[in-house]
Write a protein that binds this DNA or RNA. Structure first.
Lengths: 246, 246
DNA sequence: CCAAAAGTGTTGGCCCTACACCCATGG
DNA sequence: CCATGGGTGTAGGGCCAACACTTTTGG
């Protein structure tokens, strides 16, 4: 570890947290989940990314799962660690630090955060049950956020696209078990923020051998009923196993 | 930050380090730079990734630059943070922890590390001057390494390829200012570990508008002299600016 | 019968791969 | 003159994007 002997007095123990960028589509806009935070002497609502300091003997990956479970009740999401944000500049805003010290009842000098991202299919309605302390904010209409949370969200949005390219599986976390071609296409359109040709998208979907037709159809719609497809995990794993990639 | 109020006694301050995977080609093999570490009561040489605990008020990115400067004398390398390794399991090997505590003269409970990677053109010969405490180890013939350093290196090798796809610039950090088509091709072959067709590679190189021909040639070689090319940073930046990508 | 969305094929361009021979130089 | 590596072009296949009409259903 280099020359730390000469710098022992400079050694220190930062706090380490995880922050989760949970993405979903609300009103056809790519949105992120934010949690309310109480700011002393302020009437308006303030929001931040769901996050937590990590516990002793807790793996950061587990901490991220815990944070999202506590916020949404969801378990075992496909969470991806995508970057550590550790600049001392993160805590340059005194208001943010003061809020954090009040909330954590700890003296905070510096805090590193490990950022995670996930896609999810939770609907606005389901979140209401958690008591109005959660909101979905469209990524291009974010409220004021503490620390570098905006920067974290920006990084997450560009990260999710390359993640999907490498692991298409994750978009199916965002969809119900049975879904229509339209739903899958809209998912891609929202995440990549561009329209996709319907016919070309069908071809692309056919090329995904792990997207299989079911014998169910939409019912009660005032137009030709769409077929339902499902994601075949076994076929997917066969195709995407590391073994095949070498 | 969730429910940390109820868990205050579980809050703790881990140590945070950076570890650097510096890659280069030695004897036509993709290799990583390792530094020697002294293990009490052992005659054989032990190695590890160059790394350091981070200082108070030090950005992890700066810490990584510092580590590589201290090890190699190189400054301002194109370093990329690629993952944080934070499992409590990292310190399960008591020998590793004991060695670290001796080296750092600190009691270590747990240590998170932020892993960085870079390509570099330093030659074996140049490293000798640092007094034999550094080695280049081929990635498929690594010695025993402490903690999860082997896992970190494996992750770095697969990471570097996708990084180059996104930012081809970095391969030129690995080459001298003037280089031949052969050198550039060998660089790609070593990093991707597969042979590349000479003609196709020339076409690919021509497509890189930022690789420009100079009017210099090889001298004193016992075969047709190769032309030297150079990397044109200005052209590269024009082509790869974020502005063009949206 | 009309509104609304579902579903379906073909063509052209681009890019990548495979492949073999002549050129310049030093010894 | 020969050994060594430098340098070049073409043809075929796969992948992606652009593009318009018919089908089914509920109201």
């Amino acid at each position: 570890m280099g020359t730390q002997e000469q710098n022992q007095n400079q050694m220190f123990y930062p706090h380490v947290s995880v922050d989760c960028v949970l993405m979903g589509a609300v009103d056809d806009k790519l949105s992120v989940l934010l949690v309310e935070r109480q700011v002393a002497g302020s009437e308006e609502k303030h929001y931040k990314l769901p996050g937590s300091l990590i516990y002793e003997n807790e793996d950061p990956d587990q901490a991220a799962q815990r944070v999202l479970f506590e916020a949404t009740g969801l378990k075992r999401l496909a969470l991806k660690q995508f970057r550590c944000f550790g600049s001392p500049e993160r805590t340059k805003n005194k208001e943010d630090v003061q809020w954090l010290e009040n909330a954590a009842k700890l003296k905070i000098n510096r805090i590193l955060t490990i950022a995670y991202l996930a896609l999810c299919k939770m609907k606005k309605a389901e979140l209401k049950e958690k008591g109005d302390t959660l909101i979905w904010a469209p990524v291009d209409e974010l409220p004021h956020l503490p620390f570098d949370h905006r920067e974290i969200i920006d990084a997450a949005v560009s990260e999710i696209r390359s993640w999907i390219d490498a692991e298409p599986r994750i978009v199916f976390d965002y969809l119900p078990a049975k879904f229509t071609a339209y739903q899958l296409r809209r998912t891609f359109e929202v995440i990549y923020n561009k329209p996709m040709d319907v016919r070309n998208f069908h071809k692309r979907m056919n090329a995904m051998q792990y997207v299989v037709l079911t014998d169910e159809m939409e019912k009660g719609v005032s137009h030709r009923a769409a077929r339902y497809y499902r994601f075949d995990k076994v076929k997917y794993n066969k195709i995407h196993s590391k073994f095949n990639k070498i």
